[in-house]
Write a protein that binds this DNA or RNA. Structure first.
Lengths: 340, 340
DNA sequence: GTGAAAGCGCTAACAA
DNA sequence: TTGTTAGCGCTTTCAC
């Protein structure tokens, strides 16, 4: 019998008679045959793999998003390769290059910044579909799923301002030379910029003067975050409320607050992005911004998969709704003389 | 110029004159050339990829172990493909098959059970190196990195017994028909079996009668865990101390304890495996078994990589040391009449 | 130092 | 329904 016939039954394509099929199957079994996916991919041009580049796989936010992606992928018969960028543009480029080299069918990326997106344009140009998760890129017209970061930051800040706070800090993870914020022009990650913008807008609307001075950048690791938090809390005019841009940051801030003998919310109120599991078991439990993380991952994967399956349509920008879960970490500011 | 020469410079092998090299590089740049890793892998037979199959990527334990693996892999120039088994043997088999099909150079697996390991023997037989993470398989002689689960369970149980507890529960995630434990013969995961064995041994040594009745299985999801915890805590002779087999389980148990108006450690003492980040911020902070998770991942990857790089030696079984971090979740049992 | 040719394991197009 | 052939993009061997 010819190779081709055997290939037909093993590959599950074309037509073969039952007798031959049985024979081939038996022989394959006996020889312990394993199809070589590589060779298959090379001829078909498809690998059945979706490449995913996230900022930090250890951040529960991305963990959950990746599960959303994986579930959608599995349901459609795709597999997922994960790569970490560590929020570094160079690592992101390397990861993209690697995945393209592996001939993934499509890519999902959480772009770490908007300045340098040549590698993302390259993907697009190479004909492979690309979809963006959590962060939009104004200049790149591809499927994108995000939340309304500006709006949600405004709502969270408003909760703090309405509780009477005038010294509100925003701590975020964006890579920065120094921790101090200057202006929006220095921020190259869309979600971060929108959040800061929303935060500042509400502060100003509430009549707070120079709210910029409480915006702190560079909380990119537990160590960095601790340093930021310690600086913030040891200032004379220390903030009476803090908004944290992810649960990893909030956790470190919470630890430092405790460590300094301060109480939440009596001395410092706290709100964080992401409804991480631990936020409901602290004393007090933490008020959180509950982004639809799993849905974010699932939706972006579905968008990509539909395209992989041949759907052609203009690129879509999905913005998912977000809720705030009010728990016990927000109170009025302390009323000591220094704070009046 | 011939294909072969171009390939030599692009592939970085063989010898080419500098003039030609420069020309090829320029042309490659102009044509926006991307090497096809697939084709390269097909001829060389190596993919530069390590396949990793873990039980549950959302469990921080595996998240950290995977980071250890990734760091070691990157340092040696390997990439990692991740697959989830969800602790289901069928999914594990499918994942292994997929990764072998993708021609990974080697595999790291956290075997979900020891009964059916034919797929793991197949890997070995296919000539690809295999290494085991966190769980040993007595019948499979391959590189393995674990901790001494029996010993560490004994030490944790002893802390509880020494504090005076007589009704100590052990809650674990192994897949089971019913939550109730019968005997070690029903447990097919080495680490789980060893832990239960260690737990029961110390209980018996402490003169506790029938400690088996407080061993509960099947805490495989938050929902299942809550159900187990609720059953446990509503029994007349409810346990005065609980040992949880991972941080996900401990978190749910902690929530249920709170929810029922009980206090830690006054009403119930709690110890958990894995020093998850949240365990230090609860009130009280939780006493934990601090497995060297990152090192576990790093070591197993290094063992595998050395083999991939040609080292031949008998298979190694590494057992890493483990510490217990005593915090505030263990106290004496309550002294109400019902508990004396 | 360079070129020609074979082949990795598979699928696709066509012919029989 | 089955067999033949070509070729995916690369590396390797061997001759020049």
């Amino acid at each position: 019998m010819s190779k081709a016939t055997a290939a037909r039954v093993l590959g599950g394509y074309g037509v073969v008679s039952d007798t031959i099929r049985a024979g081939v199957l038996a022989a394959a079994m006996a020889l312990d045959y394993r199809p070589n996916e590589l060779a298959r991919s090379m001829t078909t041009g498809k690998s059945g793999i979706i490449g995913v580049v996230v900022g930090d796989i250890e951040n529960p936010f991305f963990g959950l998003a990746v599960r959303g992606i994986s579930d959608a992928a599995r349901a459609a018969g795709f597999n997922v390769i994960l790569a970490n960028s560590g929020e570094k543009i160079e690592a992101e480029k390397a990861a993209v290059k690697l995945l393209i080299g592996k001939r993934v069918d499509g890519l999902i990326v959480t772009p770490s910044e908007s300045r340098d997106i040549s590698h993302l344009r390259d993907i697009h140009r190479s004909g492979r579909p690309l979809a963006l998760l959590d962060r939009a890129l104004p200049d790149l017209d591809v499927d994108t799923v995000t939340v309304d970061d500006r709006d949600i930051a405004m709502r969270a800040t408003r909760i703090l301002a309405n509780a009477g706070h005038r010294r509100i800090a925003y701590v975020t993870a964006v890579d920065a030379q120094r921790h101090q914020y200057r202006d929006l022009g220095q921020i190259y990650t869309s979600s971060v910029r929108e959040r800061i913008d929303g935060f500042l807008t509400v502060c100003r609307d509430a009549g707070i003067d120079g709210p910029e001075r409480y915006v702190r950048l560079g909380a990119t690791s537990p160590e960095q975050t601790r340093s930021v938090a310690e600086t913030l809390l040891s200032e004379t005019d220390r903030p009476t409320a803090i908004l944290a841009s992810d649960s990893l940051i909030a956790l470190e801030i919470f630890k430092i607050i405790r460590q300094r003998g301060l109480r939440v919310p009596d001395d410092v109120s706290l709100i964080t992005f992401h409804d991480a599991d631990w936020t409901s078991v602290t004393t007090p439990p933490i008020t959180v911004i509950d982004q639809p993380v799993y849905a974010l991952g699932k939706s972006v994967a579905e968008l990509l998969i539909r395209r992989l399956e041949g759907e052609t349509r203009p690129s879509e920008r999905l913005v998912l709704p977000t809720a705030i879960i009010e728990r016990g970490s927000v109170g009025p500011p302390p009323t000591t003389k220094a704070n009046v």
